[in-house]
Computed example of a mutant assay.
Amino acid sequence: MAGELAINLATTRGSWGFAEAADGCLQRGISAIAPWRDQVAAVGLAEAARIVRSEGLRVTGLCRGGMFPAETESGRQAAIDDNRRAIDEAAALGADCLVLVVGGLPGSSRDLSAARTMVENGIAAMLPHARSIGMPLAIEPLHPMYAADRACVNTLDQALDLCAYFGEGVGVAIDVYHVWWDPKLPTAIARAGRMNCILAHHICDWLVPTRDLLLDRGMMGDGVIDLAGIRQMIEAAGYTGPEEVEIFSRDNWWRQPGETVLATCIERHANLQSQGRT
Rank of each mutant, 00 (worst) to 15 (best):
M1W: 06
L5C: 01
N8H: 06
L9N: 08
T11Q: 13
T12G: 15
T12V: 15
T12F: 09
G14P: 08
G17F: 06
D23E: 14
C25S: 13
C25Q: 08
L26Q: 13
L26T: 12
L26M: 12
Q27W: 00
I30Q: 03
I30W: 02
S31G: 12
S31D: 12
A32M: 01
I33Q: 04
P35T: 10
W36V: 02
A49V: 13
A49Q: 08
R50F: 03
I51A: 08
I51S: 09
V52F: 00
V52R: 06
S54T: 15
R58N: 07
V59P: 03
G66D: 11
G66E: 11
T72N: 13
S74D: 10
S74Y: 00
S74E: 15
R76L: 06
Q77K: 13
A78R: 15
A79Q: 13
I80P: 04
D81Y: 00
I87V: 12
D88L: 14
A92D: 05
A92N: 05
L93V: 09
A95Q: 02
V99S: 02
V102T: 14
G103I: 05
G104L: 14
L105R: 09
P106T: 10
S108A: 09
L112D: 09
R116E: 12
T117F: 05
M118E: 11
M118T: 04
I123C: 03
I123G: 02
I123L: 10
M126F: 05
L127N: 10
L127Y: 02
A138P: 06
I139F: 08
Y146N: 07
A148Q: 07
D157M: 08
D161F: 00
A164Q: 13
F166I: 04
G167I: 11
E168N: 12
E168Q: 15
G171A: 10
V172G: 05
Y177H: 09
V179G: 12
D182H: 10
P183I: 09
P183S: 01
L185K: 07
I189D: 00
I189Q: 04
N196R: 15
N196I: 01
A200P: 01
A200V: 02
L207K: 14
L214S: 10
M219K: 07
G221T: 14
D222E: 15
Q232K: 14
I234D: 09
I234R: 03
Y239V: 07
T240V: 03
T240N: 04
T240S: 11
G241F: 07
G241P: 04
G241Q: 08
G241D: 08
E246D: 07
R250Q: 13
Q256Y: 05
P257V: 09
P257Q: 04
A263V: 11
R268L: 03
R268V: 03
S274Y: 01
Q275R: 14
R277P: 02
R277Y: 00
T278L: 11
